[in-house]
Design a protein around this nucleic acid. Structure first.
Length: 120
DNA sequence: AATGTGACATACC
DNA sequence: TGGTATGCCACAT
């Protein structure tokens, strides 16, 4: 019975799970920005909260592909928070995302906007 | 309760 | 062109 199907509508879970949900919805081989997620959640200026949520992502039972979330620049700003400093880049490269100098190449090509892809 | 911090974003100098 | 400053909201101490 413990089907913990997390829902964004669960106000009980707040911002965090909402962020996690969106991040999990990111297709393989794609990436998005903190601002885009926060915008999708309604707090367009709360990008920092998204980053905060990611910080807690490792505490979640359900895996969250935090490596698919980068800043507006396409830069892997949070790679230091991963298991290894290179874990994030490696994970992205596995998904056919080219990373050079801690930055996603051709970022707009892999960019995945939840407000558009999820149908705003 | 108040202050500080944070994996960002935008504006200004 | 890049550093500094402020906004934003939630969490930790």
């Amino acid at each position: 019975m413990p089907d913990n199907t997390i829902k964004i509508s669960e106000k009980n879970k707040d911002y965090f799970d909402a962020v996690f949900q969106v991040v999990r919805l990111i297709p393989r081989g794609r990436a998005t920005s903190y601002g885009a997620i926060s915008n999708y959640l309604g707090t367009k200026s709360g990008a920092r909260m998204v980053g905060w949520a990611m910080n807690a992502s490792h505490t979640q039972k359900v895996p969250v592909p935090a490596h698919r979330v980068v800043n507006r620049n396409g830069m892997l700003t949070g790679k230091h928070h991963f298991s290894s400093p290179t874990a994030m880049q490696e994970a992205l490269e596995v998904e056919c995302i080219n990373v050079k100098g801690d930055k996603i190449q051709n970022f707009q090509s892999v960019y995945w906007d939840p407000t558009e892809e999820l149908g705003f």
